[in-house]
Design a protein around this nucleic acid. Structure first.
Lengths: 225, 225
DNA sequence: CGTGCAGTTGAGCAAATTCAACGCTTGTGG
DNA sequence: CCACAAGCGTTGAATTTGCTCAACTGCACG
């Protein structure tokens, strides 16, 4: 168990979120019971096999979840951006580890409270169900990514990130090339080379390494398989 | 919508499953409301994007779920063996297609009835939750498989199948090499070569192409990463 | 002004795919 | 009963893709 666990409670402070008139958006009900906590860049939020005491929602920043194979290879399960919920588990333990990618604020919701609430409120239960569904969908889409070529994976990744950055055809990447590589099951070099390739074929523009402009989304979609 | 849908109801016959004293095993409650239907080898059970009207439980035989990319590549999402539940969806539509691998019997449970029942029974709701969890777990483990080398994927697949065939250190594979390849994100040739390799290194024995004896599970586990 | 980190690029290599041929089994029709 | 076609699986050779190892660049920070 990481020392992070101790810091968590001491740093937590309750947020007085106002109840809203239309509580239909996911997590709306849930926000009433959250406490926001800051995490520094690369800080562990929870570890694999730890008891799943909380459920988390990104307020600001970005989070990655991952597993490490016994020989050190790391597989990133997902990236979470503001508004995303992560750490939802059906069992009693976390099956991935979670770390902040950049300095982040994360809302913690006690799992026990939520489950108790869900047993009384059909709406909360439905929200929990939806969150689990979203995770399942994400995992399945991720699987589809991993059977593709390097070009298709990178193109797919960029499109996925773009879809999550509404009304912008440029993507600000909070994560490193290594993170992207471990998400896509490629090496850092292959990711780098593929981005260069895409830039040369005028599909994207890379003004800075963390900022990617999607010049030709149609080409990317075609590459995406 | 496939013509299968019509055949389904006409062929269905209600099974008078006896209520058991200890309804703690998953699907026990649910079995009361099932109708068993036979599917011939390679028959479609449901198609991607069809409304998810039913939830399914394998009674005998074997089932595969899959998606096809626009260029024809097929990714198998999972294999389901007797006792396994599949087709559980959180949205309103199926996100994979499902086919019987061999002649199979499948129990169909009406989704609407089940959801109605779940809203009244906490136990049924928990069962639904557990099924979704199992799917999520499966998808995540599948993801971990796909970042590995060919040897590791095949070894992992064999161990997975063995784990699902209790008290037997031999595996009877209902699926073809092509199915295995599409599950592991490899080509049929690579699967075949890898099995030969494993056989030459005395880790397994392949008396017939569909039967695999695990000679040295420790070696396989080490290969599994 | 170095030092360190993140990212890019290059050359050679290893792993998996592609293309092709062949073997075995099964089922069908003469 | 045999001949033969079809399907499935295996094996081989050449090719391609992505990986490994290495060098180098740009940038931020002390």
């Amino acid at each position: 168990m990481p020392s992070q666990m101790i810091a968590r409670n001491s740093q937590a402070h309750v947020v007085a979120t106002m109840a809203r008139p239309a509580p239909q958006a996911m997590g709306e009900t849930v926000e009433l019971m959250g406490a926001v906590m800051p995490f520094a860049r690369n800080a562990e939020i929870y570890g694999e096999n730890e008891p799943a005491e909380y459920l988390y929602k990104v307020v600001s920043g970005a989070v990655r979840t991952y597993r490490v194979l016994n020989d050190g290879r790391r597989q990133i399960g997902a990236f979470y951006l503001p508004g995303d919920v992560f750490g939802i588990e059906v069992g009693e333990q976390h099956t991935f580890s979670a770390e902040s990618i950049v300095d982040s604020k994360v809302m913690l919701i006690k799992r026990s409270s939520l489950l108790a609430l869900a047993s009384r409120s059909a709406d909360v239960a439905r929200q929990l169900w939806t969150m689990a569904a979203t995770e399942l969908q994400r995992a399945q889409d991720h699987t589809m990514l991993l059977i593709k070529t390097a070009q298709e994976r990178v193109a797919g990744f960029l499109l996925e990130m773009a879809k999550r950055t509404p009304r912008a055809n440029a993507v600000e990447l909070p994560m490193s090339r290594q993170d992207i590589a471990d998400y896509l099951g490629l090496t850092i070099e292959t990711v780098s080379r593929t981005l260069t390739q895409l830039e040369n074929s005028a599909a994207i523009e890379v003004p800075t390494s963390r900022r990617i402009v999607l010049r030709n989304q149609a080409v990317l979609s075609r590459l995406n398989g």
